[in-house]
Design a protein around this nucleic acid. Structure first.
Lengths: 342, 342
DNA sequence: TTTACTATTGCAATCGATTGCATGAATTTT
DNA sequence: AAAATTCATGCAATCGATTGCAATAGTAAA
């Protein structure tokens, strides 16, 4: 087991002071470039690695950004994370990732951990049932920048990065209506979450614009899991007046619902047309392929991370830039295109 | 912006020494329990949070465990991570997660980062093209315990946590043979990886045992992506002697291959029976539902983390426990059950 | 009453890197 | 040649928590 090398070891060997070694290793302009290269060479030779703790302790910062997401195992989320990592690495920051598993309780615990590990900034997409922002207050108080993405909270200063869910919902539902649907069921997640509430707004808007009535019974709140999709199919089966269109706020759920419906003898898109959300890879696995909303995950990650870093570097004030809206797009596939339409 | 509270602030206010405060907060037995509660109360009141860096610097450990995985966005991986988190939280360790995106280059970078952040231990599932373990040598040299799971490397001391891929492959292929398949195509990932190589062994074993010939042309090496599944379907289409069974080492790939095959007019399972691997949720979305190998992800995560922690606590020597094998299981669904068989 | 413990608490050094403020040498300006 | 700059480096304090080694008070044993 080898001994850990410090700047003192290097300094002693080169007859220099630790201060000089430290400055050299940080490429400080006051240090002679010859000295720098000598020190760099020696450091490498001795297998020196900087002690982050000493450094962090002294500098009062960690170069670390925390990320709290509901779940890791969605195509969307891991794309977002990839985008964040890309940006963050370039600026030599680090990422600490944790998942709330859709529970506020765990989210609170995660926030506390992040706080205690003194992240320089925090990127959050909130859980299913997060109600208030109390657990983030500590960050605000200490001036640690906080940025929400995708699933954002209402009464927050600080920046949010989102897509225009209202518009996306509007487009999805308009498309269904254009395909001849007249009774469109919206299967959604918790309406506390902006993403689902806004899509509902879009849904209502589309109905309104096309002169269709809005009916409470055609909005079904679920947890958008695969089981929820199956359960939804069961409920549809039992409905007196069956829907002829489905707008489901998550592809995975949509897909399991579709497959359950087909087992029950429904034909898609002819009996029921379906539009999902997220453009998950599974959407092109299912037959018929699922019409869905494509969602720029990687870019969202990049922009979120970049905004935070810019703020940390002082080149952008997050407080002033309030909301960044990214572009999303309806991808029309077979699941929603009725033969007779157009 | 509030000032950060330290043990010195608490000490001063209570007319005690910082040493006492530190001991009290760490529940040291030498401290009077009244004193302890007074200090605890004051700390809470003042909003004290321990400075991890100072602590880590002094104690020369971080209570942090690093995890490097190929990708986050698989059902399997996020289940593993959930298992790890569970265990790790219970022992008040933290997790740093990073993904190699299947590239050695990134894996090397990740390892370096982990090393520099001085993780107390490292859990790794290697990338597609990782050849050697040089980038982990630094850990071994410094005595930092290293544990591989699922995708493990050969010439390593230290523990590995795996399933018996040979047995799983054997069972999958035996099942296909029992269903009447005689030409079984194995679609695999890089054979450098134990998981894929071992499944191949099982494949060969099953053929051998049932008196079927092993043919090189019936092993197709791909990257197991969705595109690879489609490409595989195209190749099958072009084969003179078509296979009547498919064993595909990954559900997502299997599923896209199936759906491409069906588009080309193949009937599943009658023309071609299919078995996948991982029991990904998508396996019950596809029609017909995919027969697959169920893989205890959460448990794998738990055991991996627990073994590492036990080692760190000195209650288990990782060097001696060399390989832990978990139980896996063949889940038979419609994609592989031929009507005529049995 | 003296000695021996035990229970609590404090002192002060330590972990390794950073940085404001000198210091001394070399170079330029007047 | 003296004064003013510039360049390169060192000194020493600092970040906050931990811990070996006292020190003190209180209690029990002799």
């Amino acid at each position: 087991m080898e001994k850990e090398i410090t700047i003192y070891d290097i300094a002693k060997l080169l007859n220099l002071s630790p201060a000089t070694v430290s400055r050299a290793l940080n490429d400080h302009p006051a240090i002679n470039s010859n000295t720098k290269s000598v020190i760099a060479a020696k450091a490498k030779e001795m297998g020196y690695r900087s002690n982050t703790f000493a450094s962090n302790l002294r500098r009062q910062r960690t170069d670390t950004i925390g990320v709290i997401v509901p779940r890791l195992n969605s195509h969307f989320m891991s794309t977002v994370l990839a985008g964040m990592e890309k940006v963050v690495n370039k600026s030599s920051y680090n990422l600490i990732i944790s998942q709330s598993l859709e529970s506020v309780k765990k989210e609170i615990a995660n926030a506390k951990t992040m706080f205690n590990s003194r992240v320089d900034g925090l990127l959050v997409s909130v859980a299913y049932d997060t109600d208030n922002t109390d657990h983030f207050d500590a960050f605000v108080k200490r001036g640690i920048p906080l940025l929400f993405f995708d699933r954002v909270l209402e009464h927050k200063q600080g920046t949010s990065i989102i897509i225009d869910n209202t518009k996306a919902g509007y487009e999805a539902v308009s498309h269904l209506i254009e395909q001849g649907c007249r009774r469109i069921l919206y299967i959604t997640g918790n309406l506390k979450r902006n993403v689902y509430a806004d899509r509902l707004k879009g849904y209502r808007l589309a109905l309104l614009e096309h002169g269709l009535p809005y009916l409470d019974e055609l909005v079904m709140v679920t947890d958008l899991s695969q089981e929820a999709g199956i359960e939804a199919a069961r409920l549809i089966q039992r409905m007196d007046k069956k829907p002829d269109g489905l707008f489901i706020a998550n592809d995975l759920c949509a897909v399991s619902c579709m497959s359950a419906l087909r087992k029950n003898g429904f034909s898609i898109p002819d009996d029921i047309a379906v539009v999902g959300f997220n453009n998950d890879p599974v959407s092109v696995v299912i037959e018929p392929n699922l019409t869905t909303i494509d969602y720029p995950g990687e870019k969202m990650g990049e922009i979120a991370a970049q905004s935070l870093i810019n703020h940390l570097n002082g080149s952008l004030d997050i407080q002033n830039t309030n909301t960044i809206i990214l572009h999303s797009e309806l991808l029309i596939r077979q699941s929603s295109v009725k033969k007779g339409a157009n």
